[in-house]
C-alpha cells in the first residue's frame, strides 16, 4: 500500500513553475531516493509533503498529495499533526542551542504534558534508534551544538523520531558531513527503513544506489523516470536518465 501519493502536483513560485505535474507513489517501509541536477525541483517536492512551502509567501500549489487517504493540501488538515507524522531532516544539522535532552524532548513537550518518566523513555528510545545513544548518553545535559556535525545530524533524526512519525523526509542529510559521519547516517537510515517510509533527496548517486529501494529521477520540474533502484541504475529506460547517471550532465 502506498503511504504517500501525489496526483498532478504543480507548484509555482510566482510565475515560475517549479513542479510540472508530479504523479508518484511512495511505498511504506521503503526508502525512495529523489535524484536530479540542482534546481530540478526535488527539494521543492520534498517540502510539499510536510507543507514547508507554506513558509514561502509566493508559492502556489495545485493538485493533491494523499497521505493515508487524507489530502495534505486540503483545508481540513492540521499542520501540527501532519508535521508530527511526516518529519523532516535538513541539509545542515540544525539542533536547537539547548541540551541534547531538551532537543529530543522538544516535539514531545509541544503537544501534551507527558509524565517525566515517559519523556525520559521516549528520548532514550529515539536516541537509540538514531544510533547516537552511546555517544551522548553521558552528556544529555550538554549543549547539542557542542557535538560533531554527524552527531548533531543524528540528534536531529532522534528529535523527529521521538514524536513517532510515519514518514521521514531527508533533504541531502549528509552533504554537509564528512565521509565517516555520512556512513554512520546511512547505516542509521538502513535500520530505520524497516519501520518508516523514507524519502531522501540526494546529490550523491552512489549514496542513492547504496541505500535506497526505489529511485526517482527528476529534471526541470518533471519526473523523468522512477522505479526500483537496481533497475533504474542498471537499465534506465530513458536516455536522459542514462546520461545523468553516467555523468554526462548535472
Amino acid at each position: 500500500m502506498s503511504m504517500l501519493t501525489t496526483e498532478n502536483l504543480h507548484l509555482y513560485y510566482g510565475q515560475k513553475e517549479a513542479l510540472k505535474g508530479i504523479d508518484l507513489a511512495f511505498e511504506a517501509q521503503t526508502m525512495t531516493a529523489l535524484v536530479g541536477p540542482s534546481g530540478c525541483g526535488k527539494s521543492t517536492l520534498l517540502r510539499c509533503f510536510n507543507r514547508m512551502n507554506d513558509q514561502v509567501s509566493n508559492a502556489k500549489i495545485t493538485g493533491s498529495i494523499w497521505f493515508d487517504r487524507e489530502n495534505v493540501n486540503g483545508p481540513a488538515i492540521s499542520l501540527v499533526t501532519l508535521r508530527q507524522k511526516i518529519g523532516m531532516v535538513f541539509q545542515q544539522p540544525n539542533p536547537f542551542p539547548f541540551s541534547v535532552y531538551d532537543n529530543v524532548a522538544y516535539g514531545l513537550r509541544l503537544a501534551h504534558s507527558l509524565p517525566k518518566a515517559v519523556i525520559d523513555e521516549r528520548v532514550e528510545t529515539a536516541l537509540k534508534q538514531a544510533a547516537v545513544w552511546d555517544e551522548v548518553k553521558d552528556h544529555l545535559t550538554e549543549n547539542a551544538m557542542g557535538f560533531s556535525g554527524g552527531q548533531q545530524q543524528r540528534i536531529c533524526i532522534a528529535r523527529l523520531l521521538a514524536v513517532l512519525p510515519k514518514v521521514i523526509l531527508l533533504d541531502e542529510p549528509t552533504s554537509a558531513l564528512d565521509p565517516i559521519s555520512s556512513a554512520k547516517i546511512e547505516a542509521t537510515l538502513m535500520q530505520l527503513k524497516r519501520d518508516y517510509t523514507i524519502i531522501i533527496v540526494t546529490h550523491n548517486l552512489q549514496q542513492a544506489a547504496r541505500i535506497s529501494d526505489r529511485t526517482v529521477f527528476m529534471l526541470d520540474g518533471n519526473v523523468i523516470e522512477s522505479g526500483p533502484t537496481q533497475t533504474l541504475f542498471m537499465t534506465p529506460e530513458n536516455q536522459q536518465t542514462s546520461d545523468y547517471l553516467n555523468g554526462k550532465f548535472g
Binding site: 499533526t81 508530527q84 518529519g87 535538513f90 509541544l110 523527529l160
Partner: peptide, 27 residues
Amino acid sequence: LPGYLRDASLALGATRWQTIHKVLLRA
C-alpha cells in the same frame, strides 16, 4: 538567530507561537 531554528521547530509540528517562545526567545 539562524533561520534554520525556525524551520526545525515548525517541521516538528510546533505552531508559530510555540516556535517563538520555546525556541527563538530562549535561544
